[in-house]
């Protein structure tokens, strides 16, 4: 079964679940979401409760674990049923290592995006059930992420800018490259959180993306960031520092000054179109 506070997804997902619970909430409030989910879990007694491995998913997973006492594993890439539980494979140490563990059921897992192919539908429509979530516990103000162009989590091509990009104006060439490739652009955490150049970033605490092509420009390749792009089919890195760790995670590593490489790349791609 499913629980969501986003009624909009019910139509699309109705074929995948026997029962689809939803609540209507003005804003995401982790406290009431977890309390409502706890009621559903108590009623349904599932063997596993799964969340997307996002900031919100981790938050609700942890709150639910405290309410239920279920063991919880995050960053899960595989879950195999055993007789009394699950064999779980999770990523750890910044995604540099994977750990295999046995966890008793019932359990909670946060699943890394891109770990599974989309499943088949059940062939019938699930029952849709509304659950009253009750009063807000936190006071919440929300400003939605402003998207300039394509959503990086849905794009086939994503161009990412890191600290090698010196000025905010220089993001224009990153955006231009993304637009020529029909893709999206984004940044690393410092550019968004420290400099305020963008509303979101790619990385374990931000967006986790699975494009066909990821182009990392002026990005050194900290595990925080590379965890967010490991699902990319092909990774290109442009960096002047030959010893930057990003080259270990790249299929094609262009060693050179991004301010010389990117304009030439833009020009040649334009000509080729």
């Amino acid at each position: 079964m499913l629980y969501t506070i986003n009624k909009g997804v019910l139509e699309e997902l109705t074929g995948f679940y026997e029962r689809l619970y939803y609540s209507t909430l003005e804003y995401f409030d982790p406290m009431i979401v977890s309390k409502t989910l706890h009621e559903i879990v108590s009623k349904e007694s599932p063997e596993a409760v799964l969340f997307p491995c996002t900031n919100k998913g981790r938050m609700i997973a942890g709150l639910l674990a405290g309410l239920t006492g279920y063991d919880t594993v995050t960053d899960t890439v595989s879950l195999k049923p055993l007789s009394d539980g699950f064999e779980v494979i999770k990523l750890t140490f910044g995604g540099n290592a994977s750990a295999t563990l046995n966890v008793k059921k019932p359990m909670i897992a946060c699943i890394v995006s891109g770990s599974y192919k989309e499943s088949e539908t059940l062939g019938s429509k699930g029952e849709v059930i509304e659950v009253n979530a009750g009063e807000h516990i936190l006071s919440v103000e929300f400003s939605p992420r402003k998207l300039e162009g394509v959503d990086p989590s849905k794009a086939d091509v994503v161009v990412g800018a890191g600290r090698g990009v010196k000025k905010k104006e220089d993001l224009d060439m990153i955006k231009e490259l993304a637009s020529i490739l029909g893709g999206a652009w984004s940044v690393t955490r410092p550019l968004a959180a420290d400099y305020g150049w963008a509303d979101a970033w790619i990385g374990i605490s931000g967006l986790v993306i699975n494009p066909k092509l990821y182009i990392a420009i002026g990005i050194s390749g900290q595990p925080h960031h590379t965890m967010g792009v490991r699902g990319a089919k092909v990774i290109v890195a442009v960096n002047s520092d030959e010893s930057a760790p990003i080259f270990e995670d790249a299929d094609y590593g262009v060693i050179g000054d991004l301010y010389r490489v990117v304009p030439v790349l833009i020009e040649k791609l334009k000509k080729g179109k």
């Binding site: 064999e87 995604g95 994977s98 750990a99 563990l101 002047s240 270990e248 299929d251 490489v261």
Partner: peptide, 23 residues
Amino acid sequence: DLVDVKRYEVPRKRVKIDATDNV
């Protein structure tokens, strides 16, 4: 109940392209 921990890598081609001189 940890079974094991191993290095985890997505296989990457790691082709180097030198753009220091001829961009």
